[in-house]
């Protein structure tokens, strides 16, 4: 074969067979790496998330706090664990938008045309976005301590509570990924993500459920955000927990983890199915 000097020859040193493609782990890590680098190099994504969280925390702490009665516990100690758990959902909206943007830009199509498991496209996203979530929640917790929040239980319980939030975030990622896939463009994703408002506000996150009208309470008591918020409080309120919540912490943690399993079992297969589908 004659190779003209102007031809493009890329196969030097590597044999000519088609490449074998990448495994689930390699491709998931590679795709997560790309998303993390995107966060690091687009700091506004992180900064907006942090500023928004901190701002709302301050508003609840100082604007609404005085008007909300939380018998048996200071409002700041009631609020911060609930706020952080609910914040998982607000961070999730960023996932939906990011997923929709990748689809719009054609980046998802590029990945889907490569010889790797298509599950990696979202597994990588879920991993990277959970890492970002950990960062934002960490900073928010720091702000919480800054405005007077104190752990009433042990430090170990506090760490466990934080870990539980991350698990909850990972479970909810699949829901937000699915929203992003279904919306197909960033603006629609932003709109669909409004669903987080009823889920977060009609929960025990910011006010005691008992202060809500009777018809609203069954929903507020039995939805995943409340389950998670109660579990976090049971770990961080120490001796006050029983007074505020009624049961031992094992009850709430079990319920929260059950919700995590339900979220993953329901939404992950649908989201994965949407990506695998041709």
């Amino acid at each position: 074969m004659i190779t003209t000097p102007s031809s493009i020859h890329l196969t030097d040193g590597i044999d000519d067979r088609p490449l074998r493609g990448s495994s689930l782990v390699t491709s998931t890590v590679a795709i997560a790496g790309r998303t993390v680098r995107k966060f690091v190099r687009t700091p506004q994504l992180i900064v907006i998330g942090i500023v928004q969280s901190a701002m709302f925390l301050l508003i609840f702490r100082y604007v609404f706090g005085g008007a909300i009665g939380t018998p048996g516990v200071r409002y700041v100690d009631f609020l911060v664990p609930g706020f952080i758990a609910a914040n998982v959902l607000f961070c999730g909206t960023g996932t939906s938008v990011g997923v929709a943007e990748d689809m719009e830009a054609g980046f998802t199509d590029r990945l889907r045309s490569l010889p790797m498991p298509r599950t990696s496209v979202i597994a990588g996203r879920a991993l990277a976005d959970t890492a970002l979530l950990a960062l934002i929640l960490g900073v928010t917790a720091g702000v919480g301590f800054g405005v007077g929040y104190r752990l009433r239980g042990s430090v170990l319980e506090g760490v466990a509570a934080f870990g539980l939030c991350i698990v909850f975030g990972f479970a909810f990622e699949w829901f937000f990924i699915l929203l992003g896939v279904l919306s197909g463009n960033a603006q629609a994703a932003q709109g669909m993500a409004m669903i987080v408002f009823p889920l977060t506000f009609v929960s025990s996150a910011y006010v005691p459920v008992g202060s809500m009208p009777g018809w609203m309470q069954p929903f507020a008591r039995n939805q995943p955000v409340t389950a998670m918020v109660d579990a976090i409080r049971s770990l961080t309120l120490g001796d006050h927990a029983r007074a505020v919540l009624g049961h031992a912490s094992g009850h709430y943690i079990g319920r929260a983890l059950l919700w995590c399993v339900v979220l993953v079992v329901v939404f992950a297969p649908i989201a994965v199915g949407r990506y695998r589908r041709t």
Partner: peptide
């Protein structure tokens, strides 16, 4: 991916090709 350099973009695809 606009946030990656040209080289990083290509390395990523290469990794995904195995």
């Amino acid at each position: 991916e606009p946030a990656l350099t040209g080289r990083e973009n290509l390395v990523l695809v290469g990794r995904l090709f195995g």
